[in-house]
Lab assay of single mutants.
Amino acid sequence: ENVVSAPMPGKVLRVLVRVGDRVRVGQGLLVLEAMKMENEIPSPRDGVVKRILVKEGEIVDTGQPLIELG
């Protein structure tokens, strides 16, 4: 699984990683606000951040690609 998608609609509050960062399974990639709750979106696997597909403040839909892992 190379693309991390939004599990719910919401607003991207914070991106916690940068392109080139090594991440571990379960590590927070970004914080999504949904229904006034902050939800940290975890990495599904170990890898390297290849691309960040959203910006802070952006509104996303369920299933929208957020981050690509390499």
Rank of each mutant, 00 (worst) to 15 (best):
V31F: 06
D21W: 01
V60F: 06
V49P: 05
A34D: 12
A6L: 06
I59V: 13
V23K: 07
L69P: 02
V23W: 01
R51G: 15
R51T: 13
R22T: 11
N2W: 11
G47D: 12
G28V: 11
A6G: 05
V12T: 11
I41Q: 13
V15W: 05
V49Q: 01
K55S: 07
D61C: 01
P42R: 14
G57K: 05
E56C: 01
P9S: 14
V4Y: 03
R24P: 13
L16T: 03
V12G: 01
N39M: 14
I59H: 04
V12A: 03
E38P: 05
G10S: 04
V60A: 09
Q27D: 11
Q64L: 08
K50L: 03
R14Y: 14
D46G: 03
G70C: 01
R45Y: 05
N39V: 12
P65E: 10
R22W: 12
G63H: 11
P44M: 06
G63P: 11
S5K: 10
Q64A: 14
N39H: 11
R18P: 03
V17I: 10
G70A: 13
L53F: 10
V23L: 04
A34K: 07
V25P: 04
E33T: 08
T62K: 02
P42A: 05
K36M: 10
R51H: 09
V25C: 01
G26S: 11
V49A: 09
P7A: 04
V60S: 03
R24G: 05
D21A: 04
L30A: 02
K11N: 06
I52F: 08
V31C: 00
V12I: 11
L69T: 03
P65F: 04
L29H: 01
T62G: 05
G26F: 15
R18Q: 04
V15I: 07
V4D: 01
I67H: 05
L53N: 10
L66Q: 04
K55A: 13
R24A: 07
E40I: 09
V19F: 02
R14D: 07
V25G: 06
L30Y: 08
G63D: 04
D21M: 02
E58W: 03
K50W: 05
L69M: 12
L32Y: 06
P42Y: 07
P65T: 07
E68Q: 02
M8D: 06
E68S: 02
R14I: 12
D46Q: 04
V3D: 14
L29Y: 01
G63I: 08
V48G: 13
I67R: 00
V19A: 15
V54H: 13
R51K: 02
P65K: 06
G57I: 10
V48F: 11
R18D: 02
D21F: 01
M35H: 10
L29S: 13
Q27P: 03
L66T: 05
L32H: 11
E58P: 02
V25F: 12
E58C: 01
V31Y: 05
R24F: 10
E68V: 07
P65Y: 12
M35E: 06
L66P: 00
V54Y: 06
E56Y: 13
I59P: 08
V54W: 11
D61K: 10
K11W: 13
R24M: 15
V31G: 13
L16E: 11
G20A: 07
E33W: 14
Q64K: 08
P9L: 14
T62N: 12
P65R: 03
E33Q: 09
A34Q: 07
P44R: 08
Q64P: 03
K50V: 08
M37Q: 07
V54F: 05
G57E: 05
P65I: 09
L16W: 06
L30V: 04
R51I: 15
V19K: 01
V15R: 09
S43N: 10
E40V: 05
R45L: 04
R14L: 05
V31I: 10
E33A: 02
L32V: 09
L69F: 09
L30D: 00
P44K: 15
I41E: 11
N2Q: 10
K36R: 11
L30C: 00
V31D: 12
R14C: 01
Q64G: 02
G10E: 03
P42I: 15
R18S: 14
I67P: 00
P42E: 15
V60T: 09
K36H: 08
D21K: 02
V54G: 05
E38A: 15
V25I: 15
L32P: 00
E40G: 15
V12Q: 01
L32Q: 02
I67N: 05
D46N: 11
Q27W: 05
D21T: 02
G28K: 06
L32F: 09
E1R: 00
G26C: 01
I67K: 00
V19Q: 03
G28F: 13
G57S: 08
E38V: 14
D21S: 04
G20E: 12
L13Y: 08
Q64I: 09
E1V: 11
V12N: 11
L69R: 04
Q27E: 13
R45Q: 13
R22S: 14
K55E: 15
R24L: 05
V25W: 09
V17N: 14
I67Y: 10
K11A: 06
L66D: 00
L53I: 07
P44A: 12
V3S: 14
R24I: 14
G57L: 13
V17A: 13
L66G: 09
V49D: 00
S43W: 15
V48W: 07
G63K: 15
G10C: 01
G28H: 08
M35W: 10
V25Q: 13
E1S: 01
A34H: 08
K11C: 00
R18N: 12
M37I: 06
K36V: 14
L66K: 00
G63C: 00
E1F: 00
G26N: 15
K11P: 13
M8Y: 02
M8T: 09
G26R: 06
G63V: 07
M35D: 13
L29I: 12
